[in-house]
Design a protein around this nucleic acid. Structure first.
Lengths: 147, 147
DNA sequence: TGCCTTTCGTTACCATGATAACTAAAGAGC
DNA sequence: GCTCTTTAGTTATCATGGTAACGAAAGGCA
């Protein structure tokens, strides 16, 4: 993402609001601030993950597998659904995670089309190493920039 | 961006909170909801812009030039600064906008290194065509999904 | 059984973000 | 006026998002 550095100026919105009435200036401001704050938070998170050899998506893949321990692994499609990301992106991301030894992929014994994706020990270790800092960044995100 | 489809479950946060105390569960939830909402809004905006032959960045380039009418055009660097995006991305985006006839780029008479980027008539026309729908989407963004 | 549709995952390709390294010109300091 | 540094913009390369189209297997149904 990204967004206008200098606060999506109230002036700008008001100027345009004059020309198009019925515009809820406050709601527009809120939406702009929402995107700006989320953008900054995502940048901080990506920088944090990069320092641990991960990306936000790689991390979230580990999370969604880990948080369903009763499921003995998820399929590629299930991961894509839970993360709301397209399947080709998941395929590529899983390949990276296998390279790094954080997950293991096996054929599904019940369906020759499907695969079962599981965390490895290293994957679980990475997750517990990264989680505290992740939550700390999320906790802190409400405090900074008055954007 | 993107994010966990099923609400970044409170259960998940609480489970991890137990292991790492001092964690502000509410603040974490807020941050997750923030990212999810922004992600969905950005997707809707990108879809809207795509339907008009633009992207969010191309649109914002037009906006930042348009909102400084006293400045007779901006430099590439100034646009990059205002949008908080790297210069190579701006170079590429400007090339697309020139192809589409929405902006014009000339040499800066006062500095042989620099260029002056201005909106064309078509650029201003596109902007006024797209703005109402843009603000409408922003206004509406607070109403939907309880994410 | 044999076909037709659906589903699983991948491949191929495109859009858009980043950084590193480069050229050309401007500006600082002697 | 000559260097050295800084600044403007581009090029090259990479990461990560998307859609379209594909092969292989499963499933529905005559």
């Amino acid at each position: 993402m990204f967004f206008l550095r200098d606060l999506p100026s109230r002036r700008m919105v008001e100027v345009y609001a004059e020309r198009h009435d019925g515009l809820d200036v406050e709601a527009v401001r809120d939406a702009l601030v929402l995107m700006r704050r989320a953008s900054l938070l995502v940048r901080r998170l990506e920088a944090y993950f990069a320092a641990h050899g991960l990306s936000q998506l790689r991390f979230l893949v580990l999370i969604v597998i880990d948080r369903e321990p009763e499921r003995d692994g998820l399929s590629v499609t299930e991961i894509a659904e839970r993360l709301d990301v397209s399947k080709p992106v998941i395929t590529r991301t899983l390949a990276h995670l296998v390279e790094d030894g954080l997950i293991a992929i096996e054929a599904d014994p019940d369906d020759a089309r499907a695969k079962v994706v599981r965390l490895t020990e290293a994957g679980r270790a990475t997750l517990s190493e990264v989680l505290p800092g992740y939550f700390a960044l999320l906790s802190a995100s409400g405090e900074d920039e008055g954007a």
